[in-house]
Amino acid sequence: MPGTFLVRRREEWRQIGIVAVYWGLLGAMFFVPAARNVFVFAGACYFSFLNSVVIHNHMHQGVFHSKRLNLLWRAILSFGALYPASANIPAHNLVHHHFDDDGDLDWAAPEHVRFRWNLLNLLHFPNVAGPRTFAGVQRWAASSRHPTFVNQYRLETAFAFGLTGLLFVIDFWTALFFVVIPQLYGARCILRINLIQHDGAVVDSEWNHSRNFVGRGFNWIMCNNGYHTIHHNRAGMHWSELAPAHQREVVPRMDPRLDERSMVWYLLRTYLLHPLRPAIGAQADAPAAQDDSLAPREARRAAADDSALAESTLAVS
């Protein structure tokens, strides 16, 4: 195998480290009473969100050389978020990346929430995006050409809920407060990211469909998930390559208002300092953005489907 030991790229150790820290924090709180404090709890919630970021990256490009190990890794990640990681294939890779479910709205479209007080939209978004996602996944699975999807999905569900259930049996209250709440926090925050990254942007546009958060520290810990426009347009590009690609391809074509240095400042500004939901702000594509450097969305969706199929199928490894 080319590259590095066990993993496809050495940057993947960062993702493995994130998940290891997260499991360490959950384990500490569950087994060591002294660790049940606000700092460890807050850390576990944050790393749960990062665990969902790792799910996102892993479902685009597997971390390990071994496909079997990649499928096992999905189960481990599923426990961290209390949902099967493979749900990302239809929900994120196939529907969200193209903002379209066969002509209907993306399951995580910002339009699904409509409170005038914008903070309520941020809080409520997972309550609607989550169920729409899982209902959509069920519909997709019924007619999917992915032969192993349903079995893998069930295996991840069984592992995630089985292990969580076991922890409940061992110590109900500790499992509820110090495992399940962080799990749900991370899973719900990754849904909220859809609102944060797309609300007010123009999903019909090729370069103004997403908001980017370009702070260096933020992107180090977030494994470059702040560079969202280029990630949508070049889903096959490894996350470690997104920063230069954003500068090269996106910045010259995008509405500059969609680049934000700090997510914290954006959240404060958008959801606390301005109580009302801002109007659509981004412009349609500028003439410079209307080029043929991108394949049509249909072709990109087909490529994503093929890639997910190849990653999930052991027979072709």
Binding site: F41, V113, F115, L120, L123, H124, N127, V128, L176, F177, F178, I181
Partner: peptide
């Protein structure tokens, strides 16, 4: 922690009711 969990629970139940 129990109070926090209950507060979060109620915020979301009320949000779902408000959306309805």
């Amino acid at each position: 922690m129990a109070a926090l969990a209950l507060a979060v629970f109620w915020i979301h139940v009320l949000l779902i009711a408000a959306a309805a």
